[in-house]
Design a protein around this nucleic acid. Structure first.
Length: 545
RNA sequence: GGCGGAGUAGCUCAGUGGUAGAGCAGGGGACUCAUAAGCCCUUGGUCGGUGGUUCAAAUCCGCCCUCCGCUACCA
């Protein structure tokens, strides 16, 4: 993205339960992309949050003898604590209960109405209180009656409701044109094809209101088209509430300033990337653009659909109970270790099996052994052989490591642009491997011994080799800062370099200039103490799943 | 059922016509700056099955088997 700003969002988490790593995975990934753009000097807005309205949530709250608001407040605090532990720094944490979001959703309904895209119809079908509407082909007939396969203990209800519907059918042609004109708007490619296939199979209208559900955003229009707002400012309950997508999806524009702050909205919309899970791809790539067009707004520039975390081949989920607690994870791996492990282990474009042991192996191999040890041996050798004075690197052309850096960085940056976070790390770690091999090839300890014996050629070479290694550590440590924002300043400190980026990645110089080989070679400095960055973990250090 | 994708070393995967690859895990070795890390070497695969095309197929074509994704209204 070469635009003057970068707006990235995640899906908003359903605030019905404590958070799992499989939910926060997406937010960590988006946080990395946000930090990368912030460090590049691009004004960046990163939005994440929670989805808090539903009959299910109201029921759970009632079961506990609490108000829905009280219930979701507690869930949200758990999400925020877990995100904080993972180093996630959104520019705004949006809640669908926020007052400006309520106004935003209602305004979108009004615009759809004004554009003739919503109408009162009748919805009929099975309704599972735990899951929402069930398609007739999804329910199961048993001796006890019709049940929801996912919630057999919860009685299904046959619903007949007068609801508002959105005229999605009117947007089929425009959606097909959008997919054709903007081939990179939906990624990865195979998801795009699935969505395109869905569009071509024909689009039906969908319902956007619920009657009689109290915990939701008041539907702003009565069936006759008049406002549902009463003179005292309250809303006529007969109008019902806004149902799901005209509530949840709207958060992306609320977070950009719609409708209260037109100036902000003009600046930030359309979003550069919506990062979402594959289970809600259709709503984001088909419903959402149509809803926006109906309101006279632009579709998002890109929707990135990531895969799921699997445990033994099964999707991690709260209902299955096979998910990892993010706080267990960060306690064992550290915030940065957790971020690295999950984003390296799971390709951002498809599902992947994960396990505690696999994360430990990845952490030990990549962080403790390869990179952490590289920094540690470099700082130790330079400290000991050069009395703590930081050696300068050779010019890139004269250094095996310097000559390879540009390609490594280019591969890293290209992968980040393509949202392929695991590939980005792999590209950087190939360079880390080069650096470790370089150490053994040059054997600085042997050069130091020769230098002590009076060999001035060896002394010069020692200086050059260690200078290259210090520079390699500086570059990798800085480049990987979006993934490991706490470790980056610790590396800089050990290398005697300043680190001027803030805790969210804002504030420093554009990273591109800093990531040139030798960018700081003219500066002198002293090395810090060699403190191991990533202590090795034992495979049986902890048990979790 | 329809459309799409995948089956390659113990694990995760790369490889789209020309003598089977990487990382991790396992084994051995030399070194010693380092978090018993790093480096070097190495065990290991009838490339899902089968029939074709070709001088030559993991790679192209047919058929079969297995697995996965999408196939509408989750919050």
């Amino acid at each position: 993205m070469t635009d003057s700003r970068f707006y990235i969002t995640t899906s908003i988490a359903y605030a019905n339960n404590r958070p799992g790593l499989h939910t926060l995975y997406e937010v960590v990934g988006a946080d990395v992309l946000a930090r990368w753009h912030r460090m590049n000097g691009t004004p960046t807005r990163f939005l994440t949050g929670t989805d808090e309205h539903s009959v299910n949530i109201a029921m759970r709250a009632a079961d506990q003898g609490r108000t829905p608001r009280d219930f979701v407040d507690e869930q949200v605090s758990l999400f925020r604590a877990a995100e904080d532990a993972l180093g996630i720094r959104p520019d705004r944490f949006i809640r669908t209960t926020d007052p400006d979001h309520v106004r935003s959703a209602q305004e979108m309904v009004r615009r759809a109405y004004a554009n003739g895209d919503i109408y009162v119809g009748t919805y009929e079908g099975w309704y599972c209180p735990s899951e929402g509407f069930r398609n007739a082909t999804d329910v199961v007939e048993t001796a006890r009656g019709t049940i929801c396969p996912n919630h057999p203990e919860v009685p299904l209800q046959w619903l007949t409701e007068r609801n508002w519907f959105f005229r999605l059918s009117a947007y089929q042609e425009r959606l097909e044109r959008w997919f054709a004109d903007e081939p990179h708007a939906v990624q990865p490619e195979y998801r795009r094809n699935e969505m395109l296939g869905f569009i071509r199979s024909g689009l039906e209208d969908f319902s956007i209101s619920r009657a009689g559900a109290g915990w939701g955003i008041p539907f702003p229009i009565l069936p006759d088209g008049s406002s549902a707002q009463r003179p005292d400012g309250t809303w006529d309950p007969e109008a019902g509430t806004i149902y799901v997508w005209y509530d949840a999806l709207i958060n992306y524009i609320t977070g950009a300033g719609f409708p209260d702050d037109p100036e902000s909205f003009a600046r930030w919309w359309p979003a550069d990337v919506h990062v979402i899970g594959k289970d809600i791809a259709r709503f984001h790539t088909i419903f959402w653009p149509a809803m926006l067009w109906s309101a006279g707004l632009k579709a998002p520039r890109r929707v990135w659909i990531h895969g799921w975390l699997l445990a033994a081949g099964e999707r991690m989920s709260k209902s299955r109970g096979n998910f990892m607690d993010p706080l267990d994870f960060t306690r064992a791996f550290g915030s940065d270790g957790a971020r690295y492990a999950v984003l390296r282990e799971v390709p951002f474009d498809r599902d992947a099996d994960v396990s505690w042991d696999a994360f430990v192996r990845r952490y030990n191999a990549d962080l403790a052994n390869d990179f952490g040890n590289l920094v540690n041996r470099t700082v130790t050798m330079a400290g000991r052989f050069l009395d703590g004075r930081r050696p300068a690197p050779r010019p890139a052309a004269g250094s095996p490591l310097g000559a390879g850096w540009d390609d490594a960085l280019a591969a890293y940056a290209a992968a980040l642009d393509g949202c392929l976070l695991s590939d980005a790390l792999a590209a950087l770690w190939a360079f880390v491997g080069d650096a470790n091999r370089f150490v053994d090839a040059e054997a600085p300890w042997a050069l130091a011994k020769a230098a002590r014996g009076g060999d001035t050629g060896a002394a010069d070479r020692l200086e050059a080799v260690l200078g290259d290694l210090v520079e390699a550590c500086r570059l990798v440590g800085l480049a990987v800062a979006p993934f490991m924002p706490e470790t980056a300043p610790r590396i800089a400190a050990q290398l005697g370099h300043a680190y001027t980026y803030g805790p969210d990645g804002n504030g420093g110089p554009p990273i591109a200039a800093e990531l040139r080989w030798g960018a700081r070679m003219a500066e002198t400095g002293r090395l810090g103490a060699p403190v191991p960055l990533f202590p090795r973990l034992e495979t049986d250090a902890a048990v979790a799943d």
